[in-house]
Design a protein around this nucleic acid. Structure first.
Lengths: 333, 333
DNA sequence: TTGTACGCGTTATCAA
DNA sequence: TTGATAACGCGTACAA
């Protein structure tokens, strides 16, 4: 593999000139430039970005940490991050935590060793010590699907509380009074926790007593949703509607409900959260709280590059959630 | 940020010794080792993997190129690659091509500049010049979801021809004679092309004439499936069953068929391909040809590391597809 | 406009 | 078991 030194020799110029041809071609005389370019071709020169990163202390690489790439909403946000990074010629190293904090910690350390220029993290624990130490050490960092509002740390997210409120309000407006919730485990991520708060508050605002029996926490999976709804349906006074803290869980819940002999949506209304791409393709199509996952990923990446350039001011961007009404919710009979 | 030189000075040893403590601690006397470890703590030393990569000419990073992370089957395979790489302390840089060959080309070049140690590619064109030049230059490479069988290039895949055959055979066994196919564009990837060949051959083997009107090519998306099925249903003699070249398209087709007033599966049987995680959660649940995407990703990564160590013998691994019968297919009435 | 020479943080070779 | 030091490929003052 040839280096700029080989090229320089062949073109009878200095390595500095070769470097200039690569990085600021306009500063070198056309004649020289072409001579160098020809020499590059001749020895099949391949640029070494790693050596560059070493010399400049910038790897042009960022790390992206998410809980689980199989969840469509994280696939979407990942796509957003990547497409933006791509435009700017930044490489993205991806890591999955499987919602395990220890894994998150490992990944962050490994990525830092790799000298990533910045980090985008969909964390399971924004208050954990890992994030804190990152901030302390001045590592450029953006929290994605963040639940924190102010503070010193850059973040992109939505108001989960409000999302939970909207979902519940919709069910109440349809006449439901017995409204359950299937949430992802609160100790695994606090996004579901905030959605639950919105749910609770909305019940209260509408004079409906909160019944803790109607809350089930489960893992963030199809199977989790499927099992959880069965638990709820076995109650002596089962819900007529249920708010699921994400669409994946909602999809599982639909199946579980059907297996329990219910007709959807007549016997049970279901609201999800995320509005994943397939939500409108489900049967019945899923009413959901939309998060603009792709845009959130894109924006997170944009913010990251911005604070990498100017670390002084953190920037937060809270995006709008929106209730998307489809067939899975219906008025109580 | 302190370096091994700082540590060495503090511990009053040479940089070589510090390096040994990091890479082969057993070769340094316990007393010295502890002295060094203490010094590392004191100056909050952080290992620089980039510098290491520069010195060793191994970045411990691989590139993974896929068409679209939003397709659940590619999310699964990505997960497999990552989890294996993680175990071996290898970082994964991810790139999406959106089924565009030019983008595939760009990504490969960028990744090579980044000095990745190897590449796993779900290519849109195994016969393109990019792949060829990679092979010629001896870049460790594994094709994932590969359609090629023998040859000099390592690959993991399934027999798409056979998969197409199985799907069609199933429909025929249910009494269908008018069987359509919705395939991803053949010029965008040849996986669908091979599935189509299996489909065609199976028809022939069963004495059913091939009707080219019953084939629609479309983009690999929900919307593509939805529109395409409508095209088929408008035929003067529409199909009673359809084989979709992936589950995503099948999901779209289900919706399209329903929108056209059909009842599923009575009016139209649908077989997909992939067996994506949500296939069994659809309504009706989707009959599909299972590909073990996660295992394929894992295995591709395993093979890559293997040929990185010993590039002499390419290894190919063709995995089994399996027909998974669910509710979306039913006997013709 | 171009060249010289050093620095980046680590590994590896060789010698002690 | 440890140390001295060259080498890795590039960017960048600084000088010419």
């Amino acid at each position: 593999m040839s280096t700029i030194l080989d090229v320089a020799r062949l073109a009878q110029v200095s390595t500095a000139t070769v470097s200039r041809v690569i990085n600021s071609p306009e500063t070198v005389r056309e004649e020289t430039r072409e001579k160098v370019l020809r020499a590059m071709k001749m020895c099949n020169y391949k640029y070494n970005a790693l050596a560059r990163g070493f010399a400049t202390k910038r790897s042009n690489t960022i790390g992206l940490i998410i809980p689980n790439i199989n969840n469509p909403v994280f696939a979407k946000s990942t796509m957003g991050v990547q497409e933006y990074a791509d435009q700017k010629n930044i490489k993205v190293i991806l890591g999955n935590t499987s919602y395990k904090y220890s894994q998150e910690e490992n990944l962050i350390n490994a990525l830092r060793e790799s000298q990533v220029d910045g980090l985008i993290i969909t964390t399971t624990n924004p208050k954990g010590k890992v994030i804190k130490s990152l901030v302390d050490e001045g590592v450029p960092l953006v929290l994605l699907f963040s639940t924190i509002k102010g503070g010193a740390i850059s973040a992109v997210g939505v108001d989960n509380y409000r999302g939970g409120y909207l979902a519940t309000e919709h069910l109440i407006s349809l006449g439901h009074k017995r409204i359950g919730m299937v949430a992802g485990n609160f100790n695994v991520t606090d996004r579901g926790y905030h959605r639950w708060h919105g749910y609770k508050r909305c019940l209260k605002d509408n004079g409906i007593a909160y019944d803790k029996e109607l809350l089930v926490q489960t893992e963030h999976s199809l199977i989790g949703g499927r099992n959880s709804i069965k638990t709820l349906l076995k109650l002596s006074s089962p819900p007529t509607a249920v708010f699921c803290s994400n669409d994946y869980i909602a999809l599982g819940a639909s199946k579980g409900a059907r297996e329990s002999g219910l007709n959807l949506p007549e016997d049970l209304s279901i609201v999800g959260f995320d509005d994943m791409p397939t939500a409108s393709y489900m049967v019945p199509s899923l009413t959901s709280i939309r998060q603009p996952a792709y845009e959130m990923g894109r924006r997170a990446c944009e913010i990251l590059l911005q604070i990498m350039a100017d670390p002084t001011t953190p920037v937060q961007h809270m995006m709008e959630t929106k209730l998307v009404v489809r067939e899975s919710t219906t008025a109580i009979v």
